[in-house]
Every structure is written in structure tokens, then in C-alpha cells.
Design a protein around this nucleic acid. Structure first.
Lengths: 207, 207
DNA sequence: CTGTCTGTAGCACAAATAGACTAGAGCCAA
DNA sequence: TTGGCTCTAGTCTATTTGTGCTACAGACAG
């Protein structure tokens, strides 16, 4: 775990602190960064990290929907999904979307460290129960049919921001934001941005 | 906080670790114990603690269900309820059951420490919305400052409906809907209807 | 190499939204 | 009865939003 940079993405600062403690004590990681949202996580990814610990339940855009855009933009960085509830559905979804591992927040510290080590070694790490991703294939999530950039826009959209503000935030023109928003509305089947927020939330974003 | 014994009850070991870190760094507490269930918490109570930090969501006996028995057996020990979700219902329930405080797990460390200090001083500590006592008056924070008609409009607003649709639904002119929506935005401190939806959801106004 | 997809951005137009006004009708408490 | 509040409805702007186009560059697959 030496010379590795770890990014912890969780909206609970105390969890981040606890995680950081464990890692500094045991792992001698080169660096540990903390982000409290997908949005912020992107910024850290830009400056380079070796593994991401991503909480699955966060306000705004769900962690599970954050996997895809991160994977596509920073393909080399493995993601370990964290969850408080060991729901099979969450695990399977995380695996399908390209996560490298899945950890329950209630796990023992040693267990977590070994999982992270495994993933840093290029392996994957899922609970035993998850043997196969069998034919059922679970219905495609709506977020899955959005492009990475659209999801980024959706993140800000879901915070109630105007097109102008989103444009400033993502450093693109307002026109471009509109194109993305239009595409999002069409994909989600929403009549307006308010409905888009509600649909995004219903599809697992605030649950 | 000196000479005080703090008990952390949470099934997530990392959260306990993070909490413990914060407390040892800042608080010079005399002792910090960790329990991962209500059952175990009882054992620690026997040997005497000064305040209990109790997670509301735990496997087995729920935290919220654990408040009452602990209060009855160890009436002197104040309980601060911890939750990942700042649900108004949870807060209210915790208060009714005799908790001395309520903290969101996503709070900043300083905020948590000051909450604990308050409670150790014999005070209570609930989020502002709930601070005004009187049971039913507590809910009246934001929703109470809206007129009945405004709340009706807000309900449809929160379904993502346009002014035109709301007007049709409530059988009033679109102009009137606008007046109500304007008043709602102003009262809630929202910049636009999307923000109004988010605020209304957070405050539990429409639930 | 040739499409296709994605992200970017522009233009134009219609619709929706937000804010600042005025103003009347009805209700209720001081 | 008066004053205040709510609900209603209107006008008038200014801004935002949503849609339909075109266009180009980069990535990627066939």
C-alpha cells in the first residue's frame, strides 16, 4: 500500500476520519484525500489517485450512479463501493458498473484494509455471496443510459441550480448545458427539470 | 468534558473509530467506550457512563427502540441520538422518547463536539427547526409560515407540475398560481422552483 | 478509412418562470 | 367598524428554460 494515494468519498466526515485513521495506522499510504460528494471526487481524480472508496448513499447524486462517470473518465482508477446495508442489489449493480470491490461499512478494520490491499494489487474483492452475475441482468438503470457528462450536469441540476450556474460550475457554455439538460429530460422522460429531479431521486438517488 | 465517560453505540466500527478520534483529540474525555449493539450498551451503562451517543439505525434492536429501556434503567444518563438521515420524524421521535440531543452523522466534527458539551452541561441539543419545544409547534417552522393555499400549491409544485397544470388542478388562474409560487419561493428562501422542491423535501413539508 | 457517438457551441424561437406592481372580495379579530 | 390577512386576478417586464436546428473536433468501432 506504499506510495499509493487513496480517495475517500463519503458525506459523513466522521466515517472519513475513521477510515483515514485505520489507513494511516496500518497502511502507510502515501496520501489520503477526502471528498464529501461525487462532484468533489472528480476534482481529486484530476490530480491523480490510486483507489477510490465510494459511499453508495449520498445526498445529491447517488454513489452508484457516480461509478460510471468516474470509471469512464478515469478508467485506471479502481473503485471500492462502500455501503451501510449489504443489499445484494447494490452489490450486483456496483459490480456491473465496473466497481473493483464492495465493502460493508460495518466490517472490521482489518477486513477493510485487506480488501483495499487486494484491489490495489489489481484484484477484485466482492463478498462470497455474489458468485455470478447471472442472466437476470437487472433492469438497466436510467442513470446507466446517461452519458458521463450528462450525469455531471444532472448532479448540479439535482441541487436546483440554473443552467447559467451549471455552466459556470462545469466551465462550459450555457448552450451546451441546455443540450445536456434536454438530453437528460428526454432520457428520463421528464417534462421539465423539476420532474427530472424527482425521477432522479426516485431511481435510487435519495433512497 | 474532563472526567467524563462517553459511550459510543454504533454498529459501524469505523464510525466509532472516527468519533473516538475526534473526542480524544479535542475533548480530553476520561474514557470512551464502544458498543456495537443496544445489548452491549447496557453492560457499559452498568459500569457508569456520562453520556451515550446512540446510532438510530442498527441491526437487531433498533437504536430508536433502545432509547426507552436505557432511559428507564439509567435515567440520569443523557442520550444523544445519531442518524445518517436528518429525518424530521426521527428527530421528533427521539425527542419524545427522552433523548437529550440529536446529531446528524454528516455534521462537522466541531459541531458534534459542541453538541456533546452542551448535553454534558445538562442542556439539550436539537437542530434549530426542533428547538422550539411544544410538540406540535415544532413542525411549524417553515410550513407554518405558509398559508393553506400556498401549501396546496406547494404540494403540486413538488410533483414537478407547471403553473398551468397547477392552475387547472386547483381551479384558479395561472396568475394566481404565480402569486402563490412567488410567495412560496420567498418564504422558503428558494431561488427557483427546483430549490423550493428540495427545501420542501428536506423540511418534510409535503410528506 | 468511414461512420457513429459524444461533447462542445452557436442561433433562433416559443414557452415557462419570476418579480414588481395594482386591486377587489371575503373573513376575522381587535 | 376598521385594519389586517388571504385569496383572487390582472398587467408588465425580464429572465430562464426547452427545443430544433447546424456545426466541428476527438474518440472509437467496424
Amino acid at each position: 500500500m506504499k506510495n499509493k494515494h487513496i480517495l475517500i468519498v463519503d458525506d459523513h466526515s466522521l466515517f472519513r476520519t475513521g477510515m483515514k485513521m485505520i489507513l494511516t495506522q496500518v497502511g502507510e499510504a502515501a496520501g489520503i484525500s477526502e471528498a464529501d460528494s461525487i462532484k468533489e471526487a472528480f476534482d481529486f481524480c484530476e490530480s491523480g489517485v490510486d483507489v477510490i472508496l465510494l459511499d453508495i448513499h449520498m445526498p445529491g447524486l447517488n454513489g452508484i450512479d457516480g461509478i460510471k462517470p468516474i470509471r469512464e473518465k478515469f478508467a485506471k482508477v479502481p473503485i471500492i463501493v462502500l455501503s451501510a446495508s449489504s443489499e445484494m442489489a447494490d452489490m450486483r449493480k456496483a459490480k456491473e458498473l465496473g466497481a473493483a470491490g464492495f465493502m460493508n461499512k460495518a466490517s472490521q478494520a482489518e477486513e477493510m484494509v485487506s480488501s483495499i490491499t487486494r484491489v490495489l494489487d489489481g484484484k477484485t474483492c466482492f463478498p462470497d455471496d455474489l458468485k455470478t452475475v447471472d442472466g437476470e441482468a437487472s433492469r438497466e438503470s436510467l442513470a446507466g443510459s446517461l452519458t458521463p457528462r450528462q450525469i455531471e450536469v444532472l448532479i448540479y441540476l439535482c441541487e436546483g441550480m440554473s443552467n447559467k450556474l451549471i455552466a459556470r460550475e462545469l466551465e462550459m457554455s450555457e448552450n451546451t448545458v441546455r443540450v445536456h439538460v434536454s438530453a437528460i429530460l428526454s432520457t428520463l422522460g421528464a417534462a421539465n427539470r423539476s420532474e427530472a429531479i424527482l425521477i432522479a431521486q426516485r431511481e435510487g438517488i435519495t433512497s
